[in-house]
Lab assay of single mutants.
Amino acid sequence: MEVRTIKVFTTVDNINLHTQVVDMSMTYGQQFGPTYLDGADVTKIKPHNSHEGKTFYVLPNDDTLRVEAFEYYHTTDPSFLGRYMSALNHTKKWKYPQVNGLTSIKWADNNCYLATALLTLQQIELKFNPPALQDAYYRARAGEAANFCALILAYCNKTVGELGDVRETMSYLFQHANLDSCKRVLNVVCKTCGQQQTTLKGVEAVMYMGTLSYEQFKKGVQIPCTCGKQATKYLVQQESPFVMMSAPPAQYELKHGTFTCASEYTGNYQCGHYKHITSKETLYCIDGALLTKSSEYKGPITDVFYKENSYTTTIK
């Protein structure tokens, strides 16, 4: 009895394709271990004539594949690729409408935090270190965002349907971005203890939790000093293409032309909904596939993004 075979390709990165001759009487799992086709788990399936010449994702289970996976995804987590594939199996079914010149995501599976993050990423200057993220990001900007969303979920250790947080998501993504040249110098002034300067680099240099107003941050924000008295913390120097200011959701007025974009969060910790506000020729609110415009805006804002380049204080 002759062994019926077909020729397929296996890959971990969709760049390096490895030619395989597979036995049609055995499952993919018996031949390769966990195997995925377009995100779908085909591990328990036997090869079919229609699979001839198709590319299958496999887990990096030998040295060659491990090197290829690390170079593309910059992670050695053995569960990463499987999590990416199972997320992709959902995100490829989502709709990605162009809204006001940006790629958004039609609401499904509690994905409003991903839509808000995706919209924000198209408006701030950011370059990702893992080629996987950078490639998928370019495709997302062009309207094909399924891979990018699935990668975000995998890097953030999230599953489809789980509630997510924009600030946490951005923080994970910033860790995989090139923020080497970003720098922030802060000064804390206390009447009792004097003053202390701190220099922050990388992710810490672009994120701040405690106030939404970048102007206020430049002037000074009140913080408790270690001595128990009130101290003032203010920005001395900022070198970065953008800054992200966050605070627990509270009524906040966004003035046209003073910011790049913002995240609105309605609801409580267990259950809520994100919308995205962007400042173009007027203010726009993007909620999944829905767009509304207004000249002014007041609502429960939790993150505001500002364009920056270089700032030095005039406070002496």
Rank of each mutant, 00 (worst) to 15 (best):
Q122F: 00
T76N: 09
T314C: 08
L151P: 04
A117P: 08
I277C: 00
A132H: 03
T266D: 09
F242A: 05
A132C: 07
Q216A: 12
G164N: 09
Q31Y: 14
Q237W: 06
K219H: 05
G53V: 03
L186A: 07
Y306N: 00
E239I: 13
L212N: 00
V99P: 00
L65T: 14
S295G: 11
K46V: 13
K275H: 06
L179N: 00
G39T: 13
M244A: 00
P34F: 15
K92R: 14
L121M: 10
V160Y: 00
E215K: 02
L88W: 11
L212H: 08
G194A: 05
L291S: 14
L173V: 04
L235S: 02
F242H: 04
M209I: 15
P47M: 05
V160D: 01
W107F: 02
A69W: 05
Q123M: 04
H48F: 13
Y28N: 07
A40E: 13
P248D: 15
Y269Q: 15
D165L: 04
E168C: 10
M244G: 03
V189P: 08
T159P: 09
V42E: 04
Q123S: 08
A108W: 03
A140F: 04
T91D: 11
H18Q: 09
S263A: 14
T27M: 13
K158F: 03
I315M: 15
K191V: 14
L153A: 00
H176C: 06
L291I: 13
I105E: 00
K191D: 15
S310Q: 14
D38L: 10
Y214G: 00
G288H: 06
S79Q: 06
E264I: 15
Y172M: 15
T232V: 14
L163W: 08
T43A: 13
H273Q: 07
W107G: 01
N147Y: 09
E168F: 07
G29R: 09
Y72N: 07
V203S: 09
N147P: 12
V21Y: 12
K316F: 15
S104I: 01
V203H: 11
N61S: 13
G228A: 04
E204A: 11
V166N: 04
S295L: 14
L121G: 01
L235W: 15
Y73V: 04
T35N: 07
L65H: 06
K275P: 01
G299P: 00
